[in-house]
């Protein structure tokens, strides 16, 4: 018993610094946000300590509900589209020769490390009227006149996908590369076409991987700020843009704090719910 306690004491000597850092600089801000969400806002950019529910009530305002639902729809769609392309791509990737895998993964990692502002800028060029896809089409004689595709909903979607897609591939890569090839080989030996093997063997086995990729893209795009600010019109702005605008340009920190806490709860609830369903499904299948 005392040995256990001595080991515990040693562990906490090592843990003191990281836990203190995370406690002060990560949990601390949450407590302050929680307090600030009940503060009274003074027009002009200040707030005073108080206990009012106005900021939380404002979550029901049409403006916020609108933004929140729009963000939710965008993230759900982005999750689906990303998985739809990333899953077959990653599966194909794991069956390629090593050198090609490395080359493609370096490309994926490089685009992953691009800032949102750079991705947004690139797509605004590519989809713009001055130097984009439509100019290439005009140049090739396929189109009469250049057209601008950004800003717009699909421009935002493309931007979000290029931010989230690399993360999705990297989440799916380890489990898919560990997928037991004997299973797919057996299915093909028994006469299943590669196509049929993919749908009836690979996809069911890899369902947790698909769910993980979807969740990642969902949470990731929910937090995206610059893409919708650069590639969208105000009606395409996500909840993150709305929150940070409230905090910086409108100087309404209490309302922004209430929204941020609400977003935390929603993100955790959605991730938790999907994981719970997944675990239950796995348990049922035994």
């Amino acid at each position: 018993m005392s040995e256990r306690r001595a080991a515990d004491a040693r562990a906490w000597v090592v843990l003191a610094y990281p836990v203190a850092m995370l406690g002060v600089f990560f949990l601390g801000p949450f407590l302050i946000m929680l307090a600030a969400s009940f503060y009274r806002r003074i027009p002009g950019g200040f707030y005073e300590p108080a206990f009012v529910l106005d900021n939380w009530k404002q979550l029901l305002s049409e403006l916020f509900v609108d933004r929140a639902l729009f963000s939710l729809r965008v993230s759900l769609l982005a999750g689906w589209l990303a998985v739809l392309v990333a899953f077959p791509f990653t599966y194909a990737l794991t069956t390629m020769p090593r050198r090609r895998q490395v080359a493609l993964l370096v490309l994926v990692l490089s685009s992953l490390s691009l800032s949102e502002v750079i991705v947004g800028f690139s797509w605004s060029v590519l989809l713009g009227r001055a130097a984009g896809i439509s100019n290439i089409l005009v140049w090739l004689g396929l189109m009469d006149e250049a057209e601008a595709y950004a800003p717009g909903f699909w421009a935002v979607m493309l931007g979000l996908l290029s931010i989230a897609f690399p993360y999705c591939v990297l989440t799916m890569y380890p489990p898919l590369s560990r997928l037991d090839r004997e299973v797919t080989e057996a299915a093909q030996m028994l006469g299943a076409s590669p196509w049929r093997t993919f749908w009836t063997v690979v996809v069911p086995i890899a369902r947790p991987t698909i769910v993980a990729g979807f969740l990642l893209v969902f949470v990731f795009t929910l937090g995206s700020y610059l893409i919708s600010a650069i590639l969208g019109r105000p009606e395409h702005w996500t909840v993150s843009v709305f929150i940070s605008d409230q905090a910086s340009f409108n100087a309404n920190v209490p309302f922004a704090a209430a929204m941020a806490l609400f977003l935390t709860i929603v993100s955790l609830a959605i991730v938790g719910a999907v994981l719970w369903f997944e675990r239950r499904a796995a348990a049922r299948e035994g």
Partner: peptide
């Protein structure tokens, strides 16, 4: 958790902190 949550949450948290 910090990296799992949308960054705007950490951003606002650090600002008020």
């Amino acid at each position: 958790l910090p990296f799992m949550l949308p960054p705007v949450i950490s951003a606002l948290g650090a600002q008020v902190f």
